[in-house]
Amino acid sequence: MIKVKTIARKNPQDLQAPEQFYLHAVKDGVVDFERLAYLISNQSTVREADCLAVLNALQHNMMDELAQGRVVQLGSLGNFQVGIRCEGSSLPEEVNASKVRSAHINYRPGKRLRKALLGLEYKLISG
């Protein structure tokens, strides 16, 4: 069950417009690698330490592959790819790597995960 709460937001394109109210998903805890390794080990014959080693190797290799500009596909979990934010230039010859302001990860969920999102249930909580 996904907890949601009501929040007010201004329109950034029209600050004089009245606020609108939206639902906002509320996080309900954090699951780290150790917890995932524990859960996986309880669902298989693999020891927790081995699961943790595989998860750490996955993280390391994902970082290496993303740094090479590759899309990392993790099956039905989805795809990860580096995206950038940069300054614009009025002329194409002014564009160069120094214009990059920041990098981020673009994530696109796989079909199975997208389908799972369709079946979620929501519970409104107070502010």
Rank of each mutant, 00 (worst) to 15 (best):
M1F: 03
M1I: 07
I2E: 02
K3Y: 06
V4S: 01
K5V: 03
T6Q: 08
T6P: 01
A8Q: 09
R9G: 07
N11M: 04
N11D: 11
P12D: 04
P12H: 08
D14R: 15
L15A: 12
L15W: 08
A17T: 04
A17Y: 10
Q20F: 03
Y22I: 11
Y22H: 13
L23N: 03
L23T: 05
H24P: 04
A25V: 08
A25R: 07
V26N: 11
G29W: 06
G29H: 07
G29Y: 06
V30T: 06
F33E: 01
F33C: 00
E34Q: 13
E34V: 02
R35C: 01
R35T: 00
R35L: 03
A37C: 11
L39S: 02
L39M: 12
S41N: 06
S41T: 04
S41Y: 08
S44K: 14
S44T: 13
T45V: 13
V46E: 00
R47W: 00
R47H: 09
E48S: 14
E48F: 11
A49Q: 14
A49E: 11
D50F: 10
C51F: 05
V54R: 14
V54F: 13
L58G: 05
N61R: 15
M62A: 05
M62Q: 00
M62R: 12
M62T: 12
M63A: 11
M63Q: 10
D64N: 14
D64Y: 14
L66D: 00
L66Y: 08
Q68S: 12
G69N: 08
G69S: 09
R70E: 00
V71Y: 00
V71T: 13
V72A: 09
V72N: 07
Q73P: 05
G75M: 11
S76E: 10
N79Q: 11
N79P: 02
N79R: 14
F80W: 06
Q81R: 15
G83C: 05
I84E: 00
I84P: 01
E87A: 15
G88I: 04
S89I: 05
P92Q: 07
P92C: 05
E93D: 07
E93W: 03
E94K: 15
V95S: 02
N96L: 06
S98T: 10
V100A: 03
R101T: 08
S102D: 04
A103L: 12
H104F: 11
H104V: 01
H104N: 11
H104W: 07
I105H: 05
I105Y: 01
I105C: 07
I105E: 00
N106P: 08
Y107M: 03
Y107W: 04
Y107G: 02
R108F: 03
K111T: 07
R112E: 04
L113A: 01
L113H: 02
L113C: 03
R114C: 06
K115P: 00
K115D: 05
L118N: 10
L118A: 12
G119L: 12
G119Y: 05
L120F: 12
L120I: 06
E121W: 04
E121Q: 14
E121H: 13
Y122R: 06
L124H: 09
S126P: 15
S126T: 14
S126H: 14
